[in-house]
Simulated scan of single mutants.
Amino acid sequence: MTIYIQYMVSFRCKLLVKAELDKLGLLYTAVELGEVQLKDSLSAAQHAQLSTALLKSGLELMSNKKTILIEKIKHIVIEMVHHQGDTPVINASAFISEKLNYDFNYLSKLFSEVKGTTIEHYIIAHKIERVKELLLYDELNLTEISYQLNYSSVAHLSGQFKKITGLTPTHFKKMKAYKKRITHENV
């Protein structure tokens, strides 16, 4: 049996869900972001217990098919942006459509209706957050970040970054370094 869990977005969430399943004695074969494969079906009492336990941690069992589909789209975007080494370099719409086995136009319309933004804007927002993260780690230069996140050029990445944050990537990096230096001087 597959159950779907909303707001499950990190490794910590997976650990938390596994712990709750173990506490309730529920056997599972896989725990992925937003999705758990149980060995057996849940009784109404087990469903209620699991739902209550997850809600205490800010997670929620889902049953609405459209909500489940939206969460799957979000998880695919996170996978594309944060684990890009594991995903092929293809058109995002084709990748999402292929992963979910739905026409992209349907997915796009549904996502926009429910989330109030397009899948493209959602992807861009996640890519910019990833760029910020990589800039702060200071392990890659802008060219390497651009390549890693499948931007067509550094100029494209920089333009998108400035449009979203109001800063150039270089200015963002300098600002963070300055704040860090000031914080250490005041300690």
Rank of each mutant, 00 (worst) to 15 (best):
H126T: 03
K176Q: 04
K14Q: 02
T52R: 13
E113G: 08
K132G: 08
Q84W: 12
T29Q: 14
S43Y: 14
G25C: 09
T67Q: 02
L134N: 04
L107E: 00
L136R: 14
V31Y: 09
A92H: 08
L142I: 12
L100E: 03
K72T: 06
L27D: 11
I124L: 08
T118P: 02
L157Q: 13
Y4H: 15
T183L: 11
I124M: 13
L134K: 14
A125P: 00
E185I: 02
K127A: 01
K23Y: 06
S43E: 15
V36G: 01
I3W: 00
I123W: 04
H82K: 05
S112L: 08
K72V: 01
L61K: 07
V81R: 01
K56P: 00
M1C: 05
S51W: 04
L42P: 01
A92M: 12
L38A: 10
L55R: 15
T165L: 11
T165W: 09
L59D: 08
E98M: 06
K132Q: 04
L134T: 05
K132H: 07
K180L: 14
T165F: 12
F172N: 05
K162H: 05
G34M: 08
Q37P: 00
D22R: 15
R130D: 04
V131H: 00
K132A: 12
E79D: 13
V131M: 07
Q160A: 15
H156K: 15
H184P: 00
H47Y: 02
I119R: 00
F11E: 02
Y178V: 10
L42V: 09
S63V: 14
S97H: 03
F111P: 02
T165P: 05
A94E: 09
T117S: 12
L55F: 11
T170E: 15
I76C: 05
S63E: 06
N186G: 00
A92G: 01
A155E: 14
E185Q: 13
M175S: 09
C13Y: 00
V81M: 01
K72M: 06
Q148N: 06
S146F: 08
E20S: 12
N101Y: 03
S41K: 04
Q6M: 06
I68G: 08
V154P: 06
H156N: 14
K72Y: 05
I182P: 00
V36I: 11
G25E: 03
A155S: 14
T168P: 07
L55N: 11
S93C: 04
I5V: 13
Q148V: 05
V9A: 08
F172D: 14
G25V: 09
G85A: 10
T165S: 10
L50C: 02
E139G: 09
